[in-house]
Simulated assay, not measured.
Amino acid sequence: MPWFRPLVAVLLAVVLPVLAAPAARAADRVPATALPGLSAQDPTRVLDLNDAGQIIGESGSTPVLWRRARVTALPGSFATSINRRGQVVLTDSRIGGGDYVQHPKIWHDGTTTGIAPEGAGIVAAGAINDRGWVPMTYSASPAGWHLERAAVWRDGRVQVLPVGDAGPHLSARVINHYGLVAGAHTPMMGGASFGFRCREGSCDRLPDAPGTSGSYSVSAVNGSGVIVGSRGLVPLRWQGDTVTVLPGGEGRVADNRRAVNERGDVAGWTKDAAGVRRATVWRGGQQVVIPVAGPAEALAVNDNGDVVGRSTASGADRAFLWRNGRVIDLGTLGGAYSTPVALNNTGTIIGLATTADGSYRAVRWQVGPAR
Score class of each variant (00 low, 15 high):
residue 291 P to A: 10
residue 306 D to V: 13
residue 163 V to W: 02
residue 210 P to H: 13
residue 311 S to M: 09
residue 52 A to I: 07
residue 253 V to A: 00
residue 207 P to L: 11
residue 69 A to C: 02
residue 78 F to Q: 07
residue 126 G to S: 15
residue 340 P to C: 01
residue 51 D to K: 12
residue 111 T to F: 06
residue 118 E to P: 04
residue 26 A to M: 12
residue 285 G to T: 08
residue 73 A to E: 12
residue 20 A to M: 09
residue 136 M to Y: 00
residue 368 G to K: 14
residue 344 N to S: 07
residue 11 L to H: 04
residue 134 V to A: 08
residue 19 L to R: 09
residue 16 L to R: 00
residue 38 L to M: 14
residue 49 L to K: 02
residue 59 S to I: 05
residue 36 P to Q: 01
residue 61 S to C: 03
residue 358 G to D: 11
residue 322 W to N: 09
residue 167 G to L: 11
residue 245 V to F: 09
residue 4 F to Q: 13
residue 67 R to P: 01
residue 82 I to F: 07
residue 146 H to K: 07
residue 304 N to I: 00
residue 273 A to N: 13
residue 32 A to W: 00
residue 139 S to T: 15
residue 267 A to T: 04
residue 119 G to Y: 03
residue 274 A to I: 01
residue 245 V to Q: 15
residue 30 V to C: 06
residue 280 T to W: 02
residue 191 G to S: 13
residue 60 G to M: 03
residue 228 V to N: 06
residue 103 H to E: 00
residue 333 L to W: 04
residue 291 P to K: 05
residue 29 R to G: 10
residue 89 V to E: 02
residue 209 A to T: 09
residue 123 V to Q: 04
residue 79 A to R: 01
residue 1 M to K: 07
residue 118 E to A: 15
residue 11 L to F: 04
residue 199 R to N: 13
residue 3 W to K: 13
residue 266 V to K: 05
residue 176 N to S: 10
residue 54 Q to L: 10
residue 260 V to P: 04
residue 145 W to R: 07
residue 291 P to V: 12
residue 157 R to F: 01
residue 237 R to I: 12
residue 368 G to H: 12
residue 19 L to P: 06
residue 2 P to M: 09
residue 251 G to K: 03
residue 276 V to M: 13
residue 210 P to W: 01
residue 299 L to D: 11
residue 325 G to I: 10
residue 154 R to F: 00
residue 234 V to T: 15
residue 277 R to C: 01
residue 5 R to Q: 15
residue 229 G to A: 02
residue 354 T to P: 05
residue 359 S to F: 00
residue 38 L to C: 09
residue 176 N to R: 07
residue 246 L to F: 08
residue 212 T to S: 14
residue 337 Y to N: 04
residue 4 F to W: 11
residue 8 V to D: 14
residue 14 V to C: 02
residue 71 V to T: 05
residue 54 Q to E: 14
residue 124 A to E: 12
residue 83 N to M: 05
residue 125 A to S: 06
residue 67 R to L: 00
residue 81 S to G: 03
residue 1 M to F: 11
residue 355 T to S: 14
residue 95 I to K: 15
residue 69 A to S: 08
residue 196 F to G: 11
residue 250 E to D: 04
residue 183 G to K: 00
residue 21 A to E: 02
residue 30 V to A: 03
residue 235 P to W: 05
residue 332 T to L: 12
residue 190 G to Y: 07
residue 327 V to S: 06
residue 197 R to I: 08
residue 42 D to T: 03
residue 205 R to G: 14
residue 366 Q to C: 01
residue 97 G to L: 15
residue 145 W to Y: 14
residue 197 R to S: 13
residue 339 T to Q: 09
residue 213 S to N: 08
residue 61 S to Y: 11
residue 133 W to P: 06
residue 275 G to D: 07
residue 163 V to P: 05
residue 286 Q to N: 07
residue 290 I to P: 11
residue 162 P to W: 10
residue 203 C to V: 10
